[in-house]
Design a protein around this nucleic acid. Structure first.
Length: 600
RNA sequence: GGCCUCAUAGUUCAAGGGAUAGAAUAGAAGUUUCCUAAACUUUAGAUCCAGGUUCGAGUCCUGGUGAGGCCA
């Protein structure tokens, strides 16, 4: 743990010890723990002790108790200079020198807040995991941003992390695209059409659906009912036949499958690159879809599973308040659960140091993962205790749910382009970028546009659903990514002019402006926030923390002059403080995958 | 039908059981001879309903209502 981090922990710990000692001495009572909170803005003070919980061991008036404890602390703890009691809240004023020493302790550390070294468990974080029959859409964007960000947060909190995805590269869906391309494609390729590979394949997936629906209509016109028509349509049978051939290893089908998946991967790579996400290792369903069956056999012998009369294998989870769940069909074929069991075990085999996995998958799969984790626990894997489903809400449009087959999706590539264009037009209008080349401008627009999009999505609690209105949703003013980037850019402008020289420490006896102290308190929180975000798997905590910090800085920036300050010591402190604020902003947003511009 | 989430200003989001529920947007009003006005300052506006637990409930429990999802 870094020095500055330790210091802050020490203050809380020290205060806790002192409060307990105070209660012992003043009231001869044993306090099990002390409740702290940051003092609210409307009151004087920095740290607040909540008196109410003490009433369980000390009889009396909370205000009187608070006052007595306050007097004790003021007398015995050097860091406490003043106190006041409001109702049952003991507000403590912490000395400026404490905060300035904290500042001196962190000022030279460019990665303040990040854990040093990887002392915690290695964790595998799975996210994205697309099907290879269509391009990525807005829902994938939320998934990718969340997964990537949680992985980065876990790293910052001291975990070793493997980022992975399981690519759903086999199955009926990809056969549909393949079949449609074969029948209507006329040899079209990404090169010949100028379409991105994933979009090209997606086009044929839609084409399949259209033709399939037409066939159904025809069959219905011939007197079939809807269900039989859907089952008997020749296109569907052909797709199913293709899947059988694929599973049998038919050369022609496999070659086509490889070609079209290759197009899709190229397209995905571009999207991932634009989105700024990456992976350490990949899993393909075509490699893993047969896994898990041996484990089911073992589980049967161990009595974890049981066999029904028809030969299908089940697990009984009624004791856990769930129901019975099938793990192998009567014909011996696998279900999703079988694969997932096998894949989880495979991963631990591949990366023996991992102790914990995070699955970034939408909340419609809550039940599936509950069951999966329970099964793995019952099978006796110790790491099964440390599995986590990072469940998140759907992204809905004002028009309702996104359905790729019906074309009511917000395409990931289009959306990123739109955001970049919006950023460009706002920037051009403001016209602050003289001296920037075309390329520099373009990369800046992208940084801002994506910053807006990423922040917009990540600031929301993952479990809540998002209603996304493409026209109005993503803003560039107020509580937004660009607002935070702008603050960073302004600080960089100051730093360019300031020309720092000499040692980077300040005198602990400096007078502190109210805003400066607030900023120091905010900075002090950063390591704790990372820890909280890691435990809650919530990038939203980082986003909101950064926003609070930036808000505070803008207020400071408006109220006091940094470069115009006459006193050299104070000026130096303010410049250094601004620099550290910028660094923390940058390091915090790095955890969200958002980059910071030097100018904007 | 069974189970799982969610419900906070007009709108989009905050609030580890703690003080007078914070922001942003949209609305009203102000701040450019001064470090980037994508900023700052002021103003008005909200906890779905009914019970319960608690010194204290937006937060926990029960029952409704509404939205979404999963399982047949």
């Amino acid at each position: 743990m870094h020095l500055a981090n330790k210091r802050m922990m020490e203050l809380q710990q020290l205060l806790e010890k002192e409060v307990i000692a105070a209660v012992k001495e003043l009231f001869n009572a044993d306090l099990p723990s002390v409740e702290f909170q940051p003092t609210r803005k409307d009151f004087e003070g920095d740290v607040t002790v909540v008196v109410f919980p003490m009433l369980r061991v000390v009889k009396g008036n909370p205000v009187e108790i608070g006052n007595k404890v306050g007097e004790y602390l003021q007398k015995n703890v050097a860091e406490i200079t003043k106190f006041n009691v409001v109702k049952g809240f003991l507000n403590l004023v912490v000395s400026n020198s404490y905060y300035l020493e904290f500042f001196n302790g962190m000022v030279a550390n460019p990665t303040f807040g990040y854990a040093t070294g990887s002392s915690k468990d290695a964790v595998m974080v799975e996210y994205s995991s697309p099907n290879t029959n269509k391009p990525l859409h807005l829902g994938h964007i939320r998934n990718n941003l969340l997964g990537y960000s949680v992985a980065e947060i876990l790293k910052a909190a001291g975990h070793k992390v493997y980022k992975t995805q399981i690519i759903n590269d086999r199955g009926i869906h990809i056969c549909k695209s393949m079949l449609a391309w074969q029948q209507f494609g006329d040899g079209e390729t990404p090169e010949s059409s100028g379409l991105k590979g994933d979009h090209l394949v997606g086009k044929y997936y839609v084409a399949f659906d259209k033709a399939y629906k037409a066939e159904i209509e025809q069959l219905i016109a011939k007197g079939k009912d809807k269900e039989t028509a859907a089952k008997e349509a020749p296109l569907l049978s052909a797709a199913q036949e293709m899947l059988r051939k694929w599973e049998a290893g038919d050369k022609e089908v496999v070659a086509l499958w490889k070609k079209m998946n290759g197009w899709v991967y190229e397209g995905f790579d571009t999207t991932y690159k634009n989105l700024g996400v990456d992976f350490d290792t990949l899993y393909y369903e075509s490699d893993t879809y047969l896994l898990g069956r041996d484990v089911v056999k073992d589980g049967l012998e161990k009595g974890v599973f049981f066999k029904k009369d028809d030969g299908s294998v089940w697990i009984d989870l009624t004791d856990e308040g769930l129901d019975e769940k099938i793990v192998l069909r009567s014909d011996g074929t696998a279900v999703y659960m079988t694969q997932d069991i096998g894949t989880a075990i495979q991963r631990v085999t591949d990366f023996p140091d991992i102790n914990g996995m995070v699955y970034t998958v939408g909340n419609e799969q809550d039940y599936h993962f509950k069951v999966l984790f329970l099964i793995l626990k019952k099978l006796g894997f110790t790491w099964a205790e440390k599995l986590h489903h990072l469940s998140y809400g759907m992204v809905d449009l004002p028009s309702g749910k996104m359905k790729s087959r019906e074309g009511t999706v917000v395409d990931a590539d289009d959306l990123m382009d739109n955001m970049t264009n919006t950023a460009a037009s706002i920037s051009e209008e403001l016209g602050k970028l003289e001296g920037y080349s075309k390329e520099e401008k373009q990369s800046l627009y992208k940084m801002i546009g994506l910053g807006a999009l990423k922040y917009y999505i990540l600031k929301v609690d993952p479990k809540k659903r998002i209603l996304f209105n493409p026209e109005e949703s993503v803003d560039f003013q107020g509580n937004t990514g660009p607002f935070i980037q702008y603050t960073y850019a302004r600080i960089q402008s100051i730093l360019r002019k300031a020309q720092l020289v000499g040692s980077e420490t300040v005198s602990p006896s400096l007078e502190l402006h109210e805003k400066e102290k607030e900023l120091l308190k905010q900075l002090e929180m950063f390591p704790i926030k990372i820890e909280e975000a890691a435990q809650a798997y919530s990038p939203a905590l980082i986003a909101n923390y950064t926003y609070d910090l930036v808000k505070e800085f803008n207020s400071f920036y408006q109220q006091v002059s940094i470069l115009g300050e006459a006193d050299e010591d104070i000026k130096k402190f303010r410049v250094l403080l601004s620099k550290k604020v910028a660094e923390v902003i940058k390091n915090a947003f790095r955890l969200l995958g958002v980059a910071m511009p030097e100018r904007m």
